[in-house]
């Protein structure tokens, strides 16, 4: 029994290994990708989307290593502190989690200064959704209700430290309104609670609720994007309503600090090429993944901007939350 199981496992892993590759990438012919979450989750979905294309352009095999725990911090600590900076090991980095982890917890000691940001690939924009039978038809009505009854409109988020939690605070600070924030264990449960009418609204991400919006079980009020989204052309952005909040959950790739410049440039070029790859764009659209490719210094800038913003927010709210 046990032997057969073991054979099955070996068989399975051989099938999973990609085929032969040509050696083009300067750092080696294999790249290990540390994933801070379980197999089958959102990070894995990104890996399954991008890595087949990168394998072609870089001529390397990708080996995924899953190190779940502490919202990614175990994998990112390993990347920053215990990985040789030779370009053979990279990691999928989720923002804002990558920064909020150590901003909120002193025990987590890595920081983005110990990383080389390579490229952001997808951004799932934030969105306000309400139950189908909600009295709020527009974002104005919703905000007006929250202004009249401070701290009583219940708003679900995906958990303390996640992007929805911080965008709720950003909106509160930008508009002077206060909500009753209810954290859930992920975007899915938060959306479900809104569908069931247990909470007044859920601050979520487009990719998680798009199916429910299409079927009419959730109503979108506003998106936290710079411009209106092609998938939801009728839904206004928050900045249209005078609230300058642009937020979302992004995923990309980073390497340890100080990897060889040649390897860094090759990786960046490979991601740059994805921008114009029509097949890649088609596959991403099919899987409802919103591409937002920003490479090299642009990605670093994006991370540093967020880090500054979230440090400030956390400093202003942490006493209230921990009190």
């Amino acid at each position: 029994m046990k032997h057969r199981g073991a054979y099955a496992a070996i068989l399975l892993s051989t099938l999973l290994l990609p085929g032969a590759a040509m050696a083009e990438y300067s750092a080696g012919d294999e790249i290990k990708v540390l994933q801070g979450f379980k197999a089958g989750g959102g990070s894995d979905a990104l890996a399954q989307l991008t890595q087949p294309f990168l394998r072609e352009s870089l001529g390397v095999d990708f080996v995924n290593e899953y190190l779940p725990g502490a919202t990614g911090a175990i994998a990112w600590t390993r990347l920053a502190k215990q990985t040789e900076a030779d370009g053979t090991t990279i990691s999928i980095t989720n923002t804002p989690m990558l920064m909020t982890n150590y901003i909120m917890n002193d025990t987590i000691t890595y920081s983005v200064d110990e990383l080389t940001p390579i490229a952001n690939v997808v951004t799932d924009p934030g969105i306000i959704v309400v139950p189908a039978e909600s009295p709020y038809e527009t974002v104005e009505e919703f905000l007006a209700a929250a202004e009249e009854n401070p701290g009583t409109i219940t708003v679900g988020n995906s958990g303390v430290g996640g992007d929805d939690f911080f965008s709720t605070i950003l909106i509160e600070q930008a508009s002077g309104i206060s909500f009753q924030k209810v954290p859930f264990q992920g975007d899915g449960p938060s959306a479900t609670a809104a569908m069931g009418g247990q909470i007044d609204a859920s601050f979520n991400n487009l990719g998680n609720v798009y199916g429910h919006i299409q079927s009419g079980s959730l109503r979108p009020l506003a998106v936290f994007a710079r411009e209106r989204l092609s998938m939801l052309p009728d839904v206004p952005t928050l900045s249209e309503k005078g609230i300058e909040v642009v937020a979302g959950s992004s995923r990309g790739y980073s390497a340890p600090a100080g990897i060889p410049e040649e390897a860094r440039q090759q990786l960046i070029d490979a991601f740059e090429a994805l921008k114009t790859n029509e097949e890649f764009k088609k596959v991403a659209e099919e899987r409802a993944m919103n591409l937002d490719i920003q490479t090299g210094d642009d990605y670093r800038q994006m991370i540093e901007d967020m880090e500054g913003q979230f440090e400030e927010i956390w400093a202003s709210v942490k006493d209230e939350i921990n009190g």
Binding site: A45, Q48, T192, M195, G211, S215, R287, A288
Partner: peptide, 27 residues
Amino acid sequence: ALGIPGSSSTAILLGALMVQGILPGPN
């Protein structure tokens, strides 16, 4: 029926649907 996974295993099945271009929801 709703596109809501009832367990961690069905969450992965839902992921499989999404990869096939099928967005979860009542449709």
